[in-house]
Nucleic acid binder design. Structure first.
Lengths: 339, 339
DNA sequence: TCGGCGACTCGAACCGGTTCGACTGCGCCG
DNA sequence: CGGCGCAGTCGAACCGGTTCGAGTCGCCGA
């Protein structure tokens, strides 16, 4: 079961077994075959813990994501899946760590106890203590998202500013003049989530540029909140004819709210936003949206991390993605205003 | 940085530091304080690899889930989240392993290289080589789902047979006579996925019992497939007035298909099935469904696994859950038949 | 014929913890 | 006053790998 056992049965020393398996020194063809045969017979595989202790690498990367208190969105699921898959391709395992902040127990486990070689951080905030902390320690990590000052660090991100702006321009081009913005929950905005802030910024600036009348809302990550949010929007300004949302989980609720209010999408009211493609397609009419390439982001994050692990002195790299808006069926020319 | 360094600075031996931190032998109050002070100053945390090597436990559990090829469903996301959270409460980390079968590289890593103390298996098949393999090795594991012969093993599962039957009875009670069943993709059914098989069984038997006319369909895990499936259903038997589905991801597509065909839910057509509550609430009208308690299943799986790890000789335990049908708005009395 | 080199192998040390057996004082009891 | 037991501490061995330095052997060229 251990390397000593293999060595004994093959009639060689432990180091020879090690070299035969790793190929780091020449081993004669005869002994190599003999060792391989014993290994195959016993189904021997070297212990990960022992190997990790000896060479200081765990072959594991940590995926740090927020605790579940606030529901997970479909996007996060796609991240997780693609990160795990991409990591497997590079022979890395993925350790999941629910963690909001720096001082979390689980965060400490990852770093302090050296359970992972590197980390991928999700749900980045503009001022993010985790990112700062890792940078300070020079610990190999890649963020999915940008902090306020991402210069000199490793990250992959969506250009939420540009994406929200693109949504505004799309609506303005269609003639909409009064547009609402449905953001992530207020608690996340206050916490400084970068997608919420940058999205809001992009929306606001582009709207000003186009001379639109706008209102912005925060909305819980669930259908009921979405429905309630639409009620608030139509109550605050019944002449609103379109909305832009970053809130995937509320999407179904937004549609329901509009239906309840008698607004037909897209005839009376247009809806667009930034949402993963497969979710945009589940609603009727299908959502015209900037499709979040979650799987690609996950894959890129792993690629960058692996590069950083292989070349500790490599200069920082990043990817900023701006997927185009997929025209589906939820937006149309502005109509007469109120239904 | 390592325990020797702490020992030197505190002026004691390495073993004393170990005992002071673990409390496994008495240490005088004075030296304990001194050691603690040095530890705090240096922010020392013992290396997980070294500890794992020494005491043979990694404090990590493996979560084995199918590779992403076929999309993830929301349910799986909830599992992952709740498993990670529950595991953290017991001081375990969670290692993700994408794995369909026994001989997978990632499966081998988990077991052969002893990266985890135990495993939780998702997406169980009626005949599941992974389950058999683990049972043979007597490796601590808990399945989320039941194989064909789950006696003597550890698992948590939904009673899909009873759940599908409950849906049938609900519809029959409302007067529906011609009902369709929308299952998971054919490829999964053929692979022997237990939920697909047991759900189909429960549906078929209950329908026979109630003398209903039924047709059963397989449906891809996406909106487009759902829409196509409804078209097939209405083409095959235009007098169908209700459907039962296990396919969460296709739900939006099913609704769209019905709308396209001019069937109003629930006036002309009733929809029900087995779906996680938060997804059932995103569609309009909200889905009357047996809500999958994914979070609870995940939590229970971890509890069972931890018990098994703590008491290696404990007799097998399991939980079979049968959540009630939540009446929402997608089912109603059978109407006149075709629209 | 001898020195040297390269191919191959071995033993020992090391990674950073845990744990066991033994040693040292000390107080208490007989 | 001597022996015993216990609290507290230490050194050494061990977990299962990797890696370095050194040793052996055969073969080549001088």
């Amino acid at each position: 079961m251990n390397i000593g056992e293999i060595a004994r049965r093959a009639g060689v020393s432990r180091s020879t077994v090690s070299y035969a398996l790793s190929g780091k020194r020449p081993v004669s063809e005869d002994t190599r075959r003999k060792i391989q045969q014993v290994v195959d017979e016993l189904g021997y595989r070297p212990s990960a813990s022992a190997r990790a202790l000896a060479n200081g690498r765990t072959s594991t990367i940590g995926l740090v994501f927020p605790p579940a208190g606030n529901h997970y969105t479909g996007m996060q699921l796609d991240f997780i899946g693609s990160v795990v898959e991409a990591a497997a391709a590079y022979d890395y395992d993925v350790l999941l760590s629910p963690s909001g902040v720096d001082s979390d127990r689980s965060f400490q486990r990852l770093l302090g106890e050296r359970r992972v070689d590197g980390a991928i951080l999700m749900e980045i905030r503009l001022a993010d203590d985790r990112v700062d902390h890792l940078a300070e320690l020079d610990f190999p990590s890649v963020a999915i998202g940008r902090t306020a000052h991402p210069e000199g660090s490793w990250w992959v991100a969506l250009d939420h500013t540009a994406l929200a702006a693109a949504c505004v321009h799309h609506l303005a081009d269609l003639g909409h003049r009064r547009v609402a913005f449905v953001n992530r929950p207020e608690q996340l905005l206050r916490a400084g989530y970068e997608s919420a802030h940058r999205g809001l910024d992009g929306f606001t600036k582009a709207a000003a540029e186009r001379g639109l009348t706008v209102r912005t809302y925060c909305c819980g990550d669930d259908a009921a909140s979405g429905q309630g949010c639409v009620e608030r929007i139509l109550h605050d300004d019944p002449d609103t004819t379109a909305l832009v949302t970053l809130n995937e989980a509320a999407l179904g609720g937004l549609y329901r709210g509009l239906a309840r209010a008698g607004r037909h999408v897209p005839r009376d009211f247009s809806v667009t936003g930034v949402v993963a493609g497969r979710w945009a397609e589940t609603v009727t009419p299908q959502l015209t949206a900037a499709d979040v390439p979650a799987a690609e982001l996950g894959r890129l994050a792993v690629e960058l991390l692996v590069e950083r692990l292989d070349h500790p002195d490599a200069p920082p790299r990043h990817h900023l993605l701006t997927p185009p808006i997929s025209l589906r069926a939820s937006t149309g020319p502005a109509g007469v205003g109120t239904a």
